[in-house]
Nucleic acid binder design. Structure first.
Lengths: 198, 198
DNA sequence: GTCTATAAATAGATAGAC
DNA sequence: GTCTATCTATTTATAGAC
């Protein structure tokens, strides 16, 4: 026996157990924050033993860092939104930013970032980077030379809307459909992007 | 002995030890969130023993609830800001809301609310209440009959700006002085308040 | 690769002395 | 009113069996 071909699910790591743990971790972190989630609750949700998490990610911090990583292109998406015609910058930035929160693939990470940025020093730094750094380091720098404050205000607005919709669940924002949300938010964002510093 | 008049600081609670504990608790909660702060760290900061906190506030939740309470008139201030002439509603709302964060007396509570609203169910409810309820229940209801979405967006914006300035410390917003911040933010807020639903 | 067992630290809460 | 001492529960992390 045991020389025959193996059947069913591979015994050992079939390669995506790691991914399953990550997914479970994201769900926990995104709803309860860093301190609020325990290794056990993650392991439980993923259907593995606690010890396995340490085995894969070293410790809680390592696992947390892994969950915070945004998919390739998420940041790029924001910078590209700014690259087009200035008249519709606001609408494009609004749409791309808010869709990061809407999308099932990136939404949890945004929530993790948001929730833990407020109770975890490392996450705060990371958020600041995603927030501004992604754009500051790009080739739209010229385009925004005298509009940094406006850009900061624009993104602050989008952050606030995302918080209100996805985290605090403010009545009129939580239920509205995505397109009307974009339509209502974009003009204010555009206004900020149109305003030069001092 | 011991019949003479007592001197120096009264042995027992001189009445404001409770207040000192509350203040220490606010500082801890406002920087580390609910789960992130320990009874011990609060006691330490206040210069008392841990056991005293339970003695005064029952348990951690009781202490937390006590720290969340906003001073009288804080909510009233927001509703009053909306009551005046519509043309300058945006500026008044912006100024009063952001000053809640700026003020040394109310700032910590706002930070507590914000930080813990994202990792504590009770705090989320409380924040939703402060956020909307305070206004919804007031006598400006008529004034805003068809502008609830706009109001929600306006406050979301202010929330985002406050987060960016006080919590995440985004460059151009964290350092700017209060008046310019108000001047730059208010137009977008006004825009939202001017927009009727559908 | 996965789990059992357990170490070691830290938390919230209480009883009781002064 | 305040502190000492301690209980109990929970958590992260690791060592090692299978």
């Amino acid at each position: 026996m045991s020389t025959g071909k193996r059947t069913g699910r591979p015994a050992g790591g079939d390669g995506n157990n790691r991914a399953r743990i990550l997914e479970a971790a994201r769900e926990e972190f995104s709803t309860k924050g860093f301190r609020g989630t325990t290794m056990r609750s993650i392991a439980n949700r993923a259907g593995f033993d606690v010890a396995l998490l340490s085995h894969y990610f070293g410790n809680k911090n390592g696992l947390f860092a892994a969950t915070m990583e945004l998919p390739e292109g998420a940041q790029k998406m924001l910078t590209e939104a700014l690259a087009g015609p200035t008249a519709t910058q606001g609408e494009r930035l609004t749409r791309s930013y808010l869709s990061l929160w809407e999308d099932a693939a990136t939404g949890p990470q945004m929530q993790i970032l948001a929730r833990s940025a407020l109770s975890n020093e490392a996450a705060t730094k990371h958020m600041r980077a995603v927030f501004i750094g992604a754009i500051a380091g790009s080739d739209v720098t010229d385009l925004l030379a005298d509009r940094w404050t406006g850009l900061a205000l624009a993104i602050s607005h989008l952050l606030g809307v995302a918080f209100a919709r996805h985290l605090i669940h403010i009545p009129h924002l939580a239920e509205s459909d995505f397109e009307t949300l974009v339509a209502r938010t974009a003009p204010a964002v555009q206004l900020h992007l149109d305003t030069a510093d001092d």
